[in-house]
Design a protein around this nucleic acid. Structure first.
Lengths: 244, 244
DNA sequence: TCCTGTATTGTTGTATACAATAAATTGACA
DNA sequence: TGTCAATTTATTGTATACAACAATACAGGA
């Protein structure tokens, strides 16, 4: 029973903490994000229960939550699968995020204190450094941290929660549809420019900045309808699930 | 065991359909919306299971979904309760809905075919009639149908789903914070004006119309911070739950 | 009267058994 | 060899039992 989560589960149990549904949600989410669980992967309840050392009750709750987050699909009497958002949904998700994150940035401009601005500045710097070092996972982590900070600090918490969801969903589709051969989605100018607008308090400039940034990101993806890169039939046909 | 859902459950079981988690979600949601289950109401799993004639498994799934929809709160080892959104959250929910529904309306303007426009026109008319007859429940139903139609027909389905959620959440807080003595939240001019803009295809006008409409709606609420109408301590202190 | 520790009750958390459904396999037949 | 039906296996749906935790009620002492 060697799974991709072997060490993490061992660490958690050693630390005395018993595995909860939240733990499972986190692990599956991250695995989907890093494409260790590609779209279409079967997630049978008993298999996951064996892996995490819990019963189906806990797994079921985790899967229900993942379905609410659009990470997996759950249809009656069928195994849960890692979701494969379509090209159309990808475009719509980006458009929704542009709207929401643009508004959050506009609301936030001029309202952040020096400490928060310094935190963002540090993340922007570290993102550039990681890119220079060729450490893409670290760069993604810092980039995500910037956007998550906007979501957390959003003066409107309802919009903030919506943005958190949208960041996750766009991250998944970026991993899915990243143009083959593209090493990184780093856009050197964008985050520094955003920081400047947040500092000066120009809300509309911040909104435009976010808008253009996300549009540029979307343009880096391969969303050509011709050859559907995600061949659902091929994916759903294969019998592979989580390794046990 | 006489509950507020007595007849509906009997009807469902007579019709041969067995009670599913979706059924429970619908019934609880509607009861919250119509304030038959006021905020703070305890929703113990066994009590709900007895009422609906199912085991805790089904009830638990329903409650998890209701929590994802922000209808109830679920904290570890504590009974689920009907959520009581704060005044601040109410304002934020309205602001979020203005943003999202405005965008949906702008996208939709000029894109609806004659049949869909006729459907909306009919709903607008029937809403006015219901108001004239003093039939407030019917008026609310028709008004909601108009907004739900926008959500369903949204060219961007991600935004459409978000709007569906926001319509539910605003409906709950409207019921909660409606100014005492106010018979109806009917705004005679707004829906006809929206219909006109959707027909002519003026997206920005449709956006402004939605924006002003929702702002007017929010202004009809009693969101004065002075006397907190929702006294959580009083509500959470009382032992009342669903009637058995 | 007020506080505090303890027993009791109420409620949720988890595991498991069995039923119901879907998927896969097998075998017969053309 | 290919196709269809019947059987077997895999998987989820539901109910239930027991453990763990929280809230309550009660009794005793300051």
């Amino acid at each position: 029973m060697s799974s991709i989560w072997q060490e993490e589960i061992a660490a958690e149990t050693r630390a005395g903490g018993r595995i909860s549904d939240r733990f499972i949600v986190d692990k599956v989410r991250k695995a989907v994000l890093t494409q260790r669980l590609p779209p279409g992967t079967r997630l049978p309840e008993v298999a996951l229960g064996d892996i995490f050392g819990v019963s189906r009750s806990v797994v079921r709750k985790a899967l229900t939550r993942l379905a609410a987050d659009y990470v997996v699909t759950q249809q009656p009497n069928q195994v849960a699968r890692v979701r494969a958002p379509s090209i159309e949904e990808t475009r719509e998700t980006f458009a929704a995020r542009r709207l929401v994150e643009g508004e959050v940035a506009a609301l936030l401009a001029g309202r952040l204190d020096d400490e928060q601005l310094a935190t963002i500045a540090s993340l922007v710097e570290r993102e550039a450094e990681a890119h220079a070092c060729g450490d893409e996972p670290a760069r993604i982590e810092h980039s995500l941290a910037i956007h998550h900070l906007l979501a957390e600090r959003s003066p409107n918490r309802v919009l903030g929660a919506m943005l958190t969801d949208l960041i996750l969903r766009t991250s998944i589709v970026i991993a899915l549809y990243k143009r083959a051969g593209l090493a990184s989605c780093f856009l050197a100018e964008d985050h520094p420019a955003l920081l400047a607008h947040l500092r000066t308090g120009d809300g509309e400039a911040a909104r435009r900045c976010i808008h253009d940034h996300l549009q540029a990101l979307e343009n880096l993806l391969d969303l050509s309808t011709r050859e559907t890169r995600i061949d659902l039939m091929a994916i759903l046909g294969q019998r592979e699930g989580v390794t046990e």
